[in-house]
Design a protein around this nucleic acid. Structure first.
Lengths: 160, 160
DNA sequence: GCTCGCCGTTCCGTTTACGGAACGCGCCGA
DNA sequence: TCGGCGCGTTCCGTAAACGGAACGGCGAGC
């Protein structure tokens, strides 16, 4: 399933899909639904709740993740991330070969391996190999909004 | 929880919330997430999969529902609806006092009580008391997109 | 080696979701 | 009875998501 054919089948623009996969778009429900309906995937499958860094109910601290896209090969997962000011959020090591790509939209984010975090402001980009524990923290008192792309080494799956 | 306070807490405009509840907006993930995060409700809770009229996997026929909003009193539920050309979709009677409001965005929809369905085109609006079996069908060969609001009689709940 | 077709990206004009402000309404206290 | 406050709706300018078209890159086939 190529991006072009999915765009045609789902009745959305290729630009929309491209932007979605690269985390540069904030899709409407209409768009996301058209795509998932075509894929035969329930929305709840791609909109999994907070996974690695659960939100604490009733508080404004912490980071929340919102998975917005995941390809059928499970080679990458795209999240929208919000990191509120406060103590750093920790994430355990992933499997070997996983790379994390973060693009910051607003605020200043300090993230990466716990022993060597990186800093990025609006429009900037971070990447690290995530087979070691890593952290996320907002620098300053502004909420950080960013996209987080997890890229996995290719896995063998049964095509639907 | 009033619309005004929810808008302030969630950091979204009152116009956005108002339009959402009336089915005249097609929210972005960002917006919907801001609201549900403030309510302490996971996105998957408001984005329940097709309920009454399940989609048949791998086919393009039938109607799909996408719940996009539900207030904490459970007095109304807002769905986005897509009805594909083909045989009419049936829905059983709801509890007494439930009213269904449908606003058509595109296509022509024929819906309502099975013995007296109504027809509406783009921009038009249907309403009926849904304590009898009712149906939905697309007129012509164009997919119908519409919003569906289920309004329940007030129920007694414990305020959060 | 060249050409054709499909890939994903980028550009661009249109559409529309967005937040802020202004509005009318209803409730409540003075 | 009147004024004030909070409610939900509507108006409006701005920001951005949208689809279509154009682009360069890559692989297959003649």
């Amino acid at each position: 399933m190529s991006l072009s054919t999915l765009a045609r089948l789902a009745g959305v623009g290729k630009a929309t899909l491209s932007g979605l996969e690269n985390g540069t778009r904030n899709p409407t429900l209409e768009t996301l639904y058209a795509i998932t309906a075509q894929l035969g995937v329930p929305l709840t499958a791609v909109l999994s709740g907070p996974a690695e860094t659960p939100t604490v109910r009733g508080t404004a601290v912490g980071a929340t993740l919102l998975e917005v896209f995941s390809d059928t090969d499970a080679t990458y997962e795209l999240y929208r991330m919000r990191v509120s000011p406060g103590p750093a959020q920790l994430s355990p090591a992933h499997q070997a070969g996983v790379t994390e790509h973060v693009t910051v939209f607003s605020g200043v984010l300090r993230a990466g391996p716990v022993d060597a975090p990186l800093t990025a402001g609006p429009g900037e980009y971070l990447r690290w190999v995530s087979d070691v524990p890593h952290s996320y923290a907002a620098v300053g008192d502004e909420v950080v909004r960013a996209s987080l792309l997890l890229r996995y080494p290719r896995v063998t799956t049964v095509d639907a």
